[in-house]
Each structure stands twice: as C-alpha cells, then as structure tokens.
Computed example of a mutant assay.
Amino acid sequence: MSNPLSVVVDADIARSSGTSEHPVSSGSRALLDSVSKNGHTLSMCPKMMAEWKKHRSLFARKWLASMIAQKKVKFIKPAENTNTLIQKNLTDAKKIGIASKDAHLIDAALDTDKIIASNDNIARDVFCELSVNCGNIRSIKWFNSISDKSFLTTYLSTQCFVPPNYYVVHSN
C-alpha cells in the first residue's frame, strides 16, 4: 500500500452516498469505500463535521462511525485564511457567496494533503478563478466522485500521477 493520505470530503458526498445505484449515490459511496479500503484518513474541521452531521446519509453515518472507531479521522483546526482571500480577490457577489460557503474545504486541504473530494463543480470553478491571484490553492487536487470516479479510485489505490486538470488552477 502507498502512503496513507488525508482526504477532505465535502458534506455533499456524505448526503448523496445513499444505497441506490444512481450514479451520484454509487460514485459517492465508491469514494468513501476507496478512502477506507486503501487505508487513508478523513480530515475534518469543526465546520465540516457540523455539515456532515446535518446532511449525511445512513451509509455515510455508518462509514464515519467506522472511520472514527479505526482512528482514521483526523480532527483539525486549520487557519481560516481563505475567506480573507475571497474578499480581497473576488468582486462578483454571487461568486463570493459560493466560495465563502466552501472556504473551509480549501483551509482544511491546505492544512493536510491538499486533496478535496466534492461534487460541487461550481465551487471548484470559483476557486480555480481565485487561484489566479492566490497561488497557494493551485497545489490542491479537487476530485468529483461522479465524473472522476474511475481516476479517483485509481489514485487512492496507487497514488499515481495526477494530471493538471484535477488541480485548482484557472485555465485560459
């Protein structure tokens, strides 16, 4: 097995990881299963834990309990710098709102192994735009459990090379 990674998993994945075979549910479940099966840890800041408790499915509740029992959850209190970067570098109120809602994901990723799993492509796009002026977030890998399911499963099992399109980087 490769070195264990610490992964930031957005609450949208916890919410959608139900037992149905719908692509959203199965992709979210596959991500959570891959994290645990490959010996990785889940990074949780207080805001993320509150979101998980509010939105998690039955599957995610059992999965999180199992991860906590195995001591595979890393409870962190990252520096909260992203909201300041958002306010200083974005001007569109809608984009500021989108980014502010998920700023804790960026803060947590920067404090750990710089890996985010979230199905929120709109937030990802706003953070990619923010990366033009905030170079520190360009090192974050952002995976979607639905559209990146195959690559993400491979990455979590082999820690293979990650192509640039998975990074939080603005493309021209």
Score class of each variant (00 low, 15 high):
F143Q: 00
N119P: 00
F151W: 03
A99L: 08
K94Y: 11
S139A: 10
I106M: 04
S139D: 08
I146N: 08
L130V: 06
A109F: 13
I96S: 02
F143D: 00
I137R: 00
S150V: 14
L105R: 00
T153G: 00
F143K: 00
I137F: 02
C128T: 09
F127M: 13
I106F: 02
K149M: 14
S147D: 07
S150L: 14
R138L: 06
K94H: 11
R138F: 06
I137S: 03
S139V: 09
W142N: 01
D102K: 08
N119S: 15
S139M: 06
I146C: 11
N121R: 11
R138N: 06
G97T: 07
S145V: 08
S131M: 10
V126M: 11
L130E: 09
S147M: 05
K101F: 11
I116K: 07
D113C: 14
F127W: 13
T153P: 00
K141M: 13
K94Q: 13
T154Y: 07
I106Q: 00
G97C: 09
G97P: 08
N119A: 15
D113S: 15
D107M: 02
T154N: 12
A103G: 04
N133W: 05
L110M: 15
F151D: 01
A108Y: 01
I140D: 01
I146D: 07
